[in-house]
Design a protein around this nucleic acid. Structure first.
Lengths: 117, 117
DNA sequence: AGGTATACTCACTTTAGGGTGAGTTATTGT
DNA sequence: ACAATAACTCACCCTAAAGTGAGTATACCT
């Protein structure tokens, strides 16, 4: 048993937010889909193309990768830059500032996992 | 378009972990179930009993609350303390150090959400 | 004797998400 | 002429998660 709150401490805790509003729900729902944060991380690490991302995750299908990429674009976590319109299309993905800030927190989560799992 | 990595920067990025291993998958899977982090937060804020938690989340059913609590106990994010064995049972829940460290990161996620959503 | 309270569990249905197969477009290489 | 390539989308299935209804134990209160 660890860190019980002292009785009479008026229910305050050292967590900044006094009430975890729905934003956290939304954030968690948006970051939890399988592969999504790994793909984001890979893009942050410089992997720009669909095909290279495919190679990076052999057990991830084209379809799911496409879905995750469009989600990441919709979330404004990555930017999609069209290099060549005509087939064979060439598109590059880049992480945004918003995505980079999120990744820092995801990395904290990773560190927490390493410590406690 | 924001923060593209400079070409030739050898794919390094300012994220600590060089590769986001499966731990992040596991962590995300464990924290994403609906209500779970909110229940954890409420417990951290001093709400100790099943019935008080029920009142705190009117749209959360007994069954899901029970499931989330047992998950949180299994994850060692909360401790379950039996106050009275015989019916009517009385049980108190307390957050663990592990849970408290996680909540700090969840709060960062919350702040990130407030900033960017 | 019947109702209430606490903290659940079990079985079931419904919904959302993950995953698969096929098809598209236009250009380059053999 | 034919295959390959890049980056997808559409339609479908199937499993896992969410949510719902009912039931349980025991003691106290009226």
């Amino acid at each position: 048993m660890s860190s019980q709150l002292k009785p009479g401490t008026s229910n305050a805790c050292n967590i900044t937010a006094l009430s975890l509003a729905c934003e956290v729900n939304d954030v968690l729902r948006d970051i939890s889909p399988r592969w999504k944060m790994q793909v984001l991380h890979k893009i942050a690490a410089g992997t720009k193309q669909f095909s290279s991302l495919k190679l990076a995750f052999p057990s991830l299908s084209d379809q799911i990768l496409g879905k995750r990429l469009s989600e990441l674009v919709d979330d404004e976590l990555i930017d999609k830059v069209i290099i060549e319109e005509k087939a064979p299309k060439r598109i590059h993905y880049f992480i945004t500032d918003k995505g980079l800030e999120l990744l820092k927190i995801i990395d904290d989560l990773h560190q927490w996992g390493l410590k406690w799992y």
